[in-house]
């Protein structure tokens, strides 16, 4: 398959999955471009894993259509299997096999040509820093090492499309950088990656991302597009008594969330206030309220980050939510 960068590899329309009464994924529309790292951002239980499972053909959708690499899923899921790699959220390699044995098993099962198997495993052991640990049982690896091994296992057959479900949840920040280097290398080599996460700094690295909340896709686009949409709606308030200031600001009409960051408060406002004033107008109202209460404080506009995007997308109704970060 010859895929250039503007081909769409995953297309989903009206994707829905119900578990009894619960709607875990609710009418999600998705388009994932080739050779890109596509992020799935969402809190616990937002339906990230469920969506990924449906896209790999492991779960049958309750409604909606899926097309992955030109194959209709779940009907043609079996044909899709040889082209994808899937790293599950929970460690799913065999804990009672060694690092090397796990890779040998996956190479055979994924159909890596016999003649190439040895070289490929050697290559992966080197790239993923398992040279001196190949005889260690996978169950005795640390959390981060397990995730590294799982990634090595998922790419052993050089799939065109990789699904990674929270691949770095147990990786320390230092190694996470290393991990993401690998993901970009894979994307450069022509692999399409779909990565789920609930970490903002990871989401920021993705070429594109979709934000899920309660099973609903609430926003998608490049990180720059997403933060750009919040232009002018974020403020930093430096206050002498941040706790008290926070309680005051929350009640200002048009304020979506107030989060304490160190001694400062990060305020996200709605697009328009109750009196249809602009976001900047809401900023002024904050100053007035604080001054009226005798608080010494200074409000300045600040560029939006993905966390703001996330909060804006998920907390439209939670006007009184107080978030301590």
């Amino acid at each position: 398959m010859n895929i250039d960068s503007d081909t769409v590899v995953i297309r989903a329309h009206g994707l829905t999955r119900r578990f009894g009464e619960l709607v875990a994924v609710d009418r999600v529309d998705l388009q994932v471009p080739a050779r890109r790292v596509y992020g799935f951002l969402g809190p616990n239980g937002s339906g990230k894993s469920t969506t990924i499972r449906m896209l790999c053909g492991l779960l049958t959708p309750s409604a909606g259509e899926i097309e992955v690499l030109g194959l209709r899923i779940p009907a043609e899921a079996e044909a899709l299997r040889r082209h994808i790699g899937y790293m599950t959220q929970r460690f799913s390699l065999f804990e009672d096999l060694t690092v090397r044995e796990n890779l040998e098993f996956l190479a055979a099962v994924q159909g890596v040509p016999k003649a190439k198997t040895k070289a490929r495993i050697g290559e992966l052991l080197g790239q993923y820093h398992f040279g001196d640990r190949q005889k260690q049982l996978a169950g005795t690896l640390s959390g981060g090492q397990k995730q590294r091994l799982a990634l090595a296992g998922a790419v052993i057959h050089e799939p065109e499309l990789l699904f990674l479900d929270e691949p770095t949840s147990a990786v320390d920040p230092e190694s996470r950088r290393d991990f993401w280097e690998k993901l970009f290398e894979l994307a450069d080599a022509g692999t399409t990656l779909l990565v789920s996460t609930h970490l903002m700094d990871e989401a920021e690295r993705c070429h594109r991302l979709a934000i899920l909340n309660l099973g609903v896709l609430v926003a998608d686009g490049t990180p720059a597009e997403l933060t750009g949409r919040l232009q002018g709606r974020t403020f930093i308030v430096e206050a002498a008594d941040p706790r008290r200031a926070q309680r005051l600001i929350v009640d200002v009409p048009g304020v979506l969330s107030v989060a304490q960051v160190g001694n400062n408060l990060r305020v996200l406002t709605a697009e328009r206030g109750d009196a249809a004033e602009s976001a900047a107008g809401i900023g002024q109202r904050i100053d007035e309220v604080l001054a009226h209460a005798g608080q010494t404080a200074q409000t300045t506009a600040t560029p939006a980050n993905l966390e703001d995007v996330f909060v804006a997308a998920t907390r439209n109704d939670a006007k009184h939510a107080v978030q301590a970060a």
Binding site: Y86, R90, S92
Partner: peptide, 13 residues
């Protein structure tokens, strides 16, 4: 139970 099955069924086995 150990979660291996999700890996196995996503392969061509």
């Amino acid at each position: 139970e150990r979660g291996n099955m999700e890996l196995l069924i996503a392969t061509p086995l």
